[in-house]
Design a binder for these strands. Structure first.
Length: 290
DNA sequence: CAGAATCACTAGTACTCTTC
DNA sequence: GAAGAGTACTAGTGATTCTG
């Protein structure tokens, strides 16, 4: 679509601009239904104009937000505009989540509460579900239960978008919350200069990405001690993975659940003293909505 | 429940690309 | 370059959904 035409082409249809009212005789009083009938095309026309006007504004906003030259995207279609907007908003949501976590550690408590609620729902659903393998059910519930009992600790500093290095100047302090395992909160600090490489803090390993996203590792007792704690992590596909990491894999949400899928990285937690050694023993694709 | 708002479909134009 | 296919868009309108 030639977007620079203002999205509104002049009378493409032969009947455009000649609404039903044109055939109406003005001297004859119109009934309500007639009036409605005659104004319908006009109302619809205005409605479409509103849609196009907003789409035009959206196009300018999204191109500006993405720092793209609008003159080089004159061919942008409506579907493209909507797709780019969806993508951009998803990125903003991720950034907001990152900011919320760094500003308010209690968010992790809320995360756990949400996790607990989801787990309860899964339990309830599985109890009513026939045809689900008992072993799979037990493993799933056991895994979720084990996850819930863990310290969900994370500390990260998402790198800024290109050309926006400002907030990188501030070191990030994250106080880990008390947990059911009685672990002592561990204050962590990540300097901006450290943000682009995997780090190990208090037993948790952090991998920031260059695009503002991140992945992290949490110890998980659901697996035998001998095999080392392994848990799923999520990250964007272009997260730079160090040599100590096993490659990620893409999984997609189940039918009926919105989402574009996630890349899950399976890896073993590396103690600070062993950071950099080969890890990652086991991978298992599990889709999660968070 | 009537009227308004929105959706979904059809028919038409404009434009691009490919083929001959 | 002409013809045709494909795509993107618009307008009009009946059908459907929402709302006061």
């Amino acid at each position: 679509m030639p977007a620079d035409t203002g999205m509104e082409k002049p009378t493409a249809s032969p009947i455009a601009g000649a609404p039903a009212s044109a055939s109406h005789t003005p001297d004859k009083p119109r009934s309500a239904s007639e009036h409605r009938k005659s104004s319908k095309p006009i109302m619809e026309k205005r409605r479409r104009a509103r849609i196009n006007e907003s789409l035009g504004q959206l196009k300018m906003l999204i191109l500006d937000a993405l720092k793209k030259d609008s003159s080089r995207h004159s061919k942008l279609e409506k579907a493209d505009i909507l797709e780019m907007t969806v993508k951009h908003l998803r990125n903003l949501q991720r950034a907001q989540m990152a900011a919320a976590l760094s500003a308010d550690p209690s968010v992790l408590g809320k995360y756990r509460a949400g996790f607990n609620e989801c787990m309860n729902e899964v339990t309830r659903f599985l109890s009513t579900c026939e045809g689900v393998n008992a072993d799979v059910r037990a493993r799933l519930l056991g895994h979720l239960s084990a996850c819930l009992g863990q310290i969900v600790a994370m500390n990260y500093l998402p790198p800024p978008p290109a050309g926006q290095p400002a907030h990188l100047a501030q070191p990030l302090h994250v106080q880990l919350p008390p947990t059911t395992t009685g672990a002592v909160p561990v204050p962590c600090k990540l300097e901006p200069t450290e943000a682009l490489s995997p780090k190990v803090y208090g037993g948790f390993q952090l991998v920031p990405a260059t695009d503002g996203q991140f992945a992290f590792l949490i110890p998980n007792p659901a697996f035998p001690p001998g095999s080392g704690p392994v848990i799923p992590l999520y990250a964007n596909a272009n997260v730079p993975v160090s040599t100590a990491w096993r490659s990620s894999e893409r999984v997609h949400p189940p039918a009926g659940i919105p989402g574009a899928g996630l890349d899950i990285i399976w890896a073993r937690v590396v103690p600070a003293s062993q950071a950099g050694s080969p890890i990652a023993e086991r991978r298992e694709a599990v889709w999660r909505p968070w």
